[in-house]
């Protein structure tokens, strides 16, 4: 059974948005600043995938650890070298937001230089690259779809266990909840925050690695995906890790499938406007229910539903 490419795109965009927005939420919880450089972590992962295929002619999956580590280190560098010094100097939140944008511009410059250099020295295409052919196919299902769902399941389960069943997870939640009190009881808040940033970058890098196996890669791919990641986090309440999972799936899937659904009713032009969907979702959520999905009180709804005959 062959899958429709649209279905693959929708599922992939949903799971990658979930993965990336979990990372975004992890950093938002620690430093309370929306990280506009989060898309760059995806671009880093995507280019590791591209170079694995273009330069080494190898399967990108072999380099998953490299994408995780490199993007993680870049994220830690962003936190330790830029954000933490700024926060300790008392830079207001708007200044910190601009600083994260600047980090993304910096990473963009570095990625562009490397891409340009690789293009000149090795004579390989490094912008608008399609490496779908390097992926494995299982029973006519593209491998990237299987691996992205598997990765998402692993990450969500792993995070749940790590955060709720281990000592370190308890320490992490404590450090997020109340940094000074956590410091008093002997938790090293700095280590915990650094690890959150490392995980955040790492998830972004992995999402980018898989992104490259289905979508075209260019130096701005991550930044173009950024509105989807932000909309997912915002829908998830911007402070809830598992809300971000749900938000990512909803926004990612709907940003691909909604235009195609509308197009099937004869509005073909609507497909061009696809990038608007996550933006519109984000604006509506922020204006009407800024707490996102977390503001929905399931217990209340259930009680009301039971009470009504």
């Amino acid at each position: 059974m062959a899958l429709e490419p649209t279905v693959v795109s929708a599922v992939l965009s949903g799971s990658l948005a979930a993965l990336a927005s979990v990372g975004l939420t992890l950093t938002y919880l620690t430093t309370k600043v929306p990280n506009f450089a989060h898309g760059s972590f995806l671009t880093i992962g995507a280019y590791i995938s591209v170079y694995a295929v273009q330069l080494n002619r190898q399967n990108p999956y072999i380099y998953a650890w490299l994408a995780f580590v490199v993007a993680g280190i870049v994220a830690v560098a962003q936190y330790r070298l830029v954000l933490r010094p700024l926060i300790s100097r008392g830079t207001p939140i708007v200044g910190q937001m601009v600083a994260t944008v600047t980090v993304s511009i910096f990473i963009f410059g570095i990625i562009s230089i490397i891409a340009d250099w690789a293009n000149r020295v090795y004579k390989v295409q490094t912008s608008f690259v399609f490496i779908r052919h390097a992926d494995f196919v299982f029973e006519e299902i593209p491998g990237v779809m299987i691996s992205s769902i598997a990765l998402l399941a692993t990450v969500s389960l792993g995070l749940y266990v790590a955060l709720h069943k281990t000592r370190f997870g308890t320490a992490m939640r404590a450090a997020i909840e109340n940094p000074s009190l956590a410091g008093v009881v002997g938790i090293n808040v700095n280590t915990v925050y650094t690890l959150s940033w490392f995980l955040s970058g790492g998830f972004g890098g992995l999402a980018g690695l898989l992104f490259a196996l289905w979508f075209p890669v260019t130096t701005t791919s991550g930044d173009e995906f950024l509105p989807t990641i932000f909309a997912s986090s915002v829908l998830g309440g911007l402070g809830s890790i598992f809300g971000a999972f749900a938000g990512g799936l909803v926004v990612g899937v709907s940003s691909v499938s909604l235009p195609f659904a509308l197009a099937s009713f004869g509005l073909v032009e609507i497909i061009q406007f696809r990038p608007i969907i996550p933006l519109v979702i984000m604006v509506i959520i922020l204006l009407t229910m800024p707490e996102g999905l977390t503001s929905i009180n399931m217990r209340n709804i259930l009680r009301r539903w039971r009470r009504s005959p």
Binding site: T91, F106, G109, S112
Partner: peptide, 19 residues
Amino acid sequence: FDVVWLNPILLSLSLIFVM
């Protein structure tokens, strides 16, 4: 590499430095 890519790097470094 193309020299124009120095622009984003100079820009971001100068902003972080000033901040």
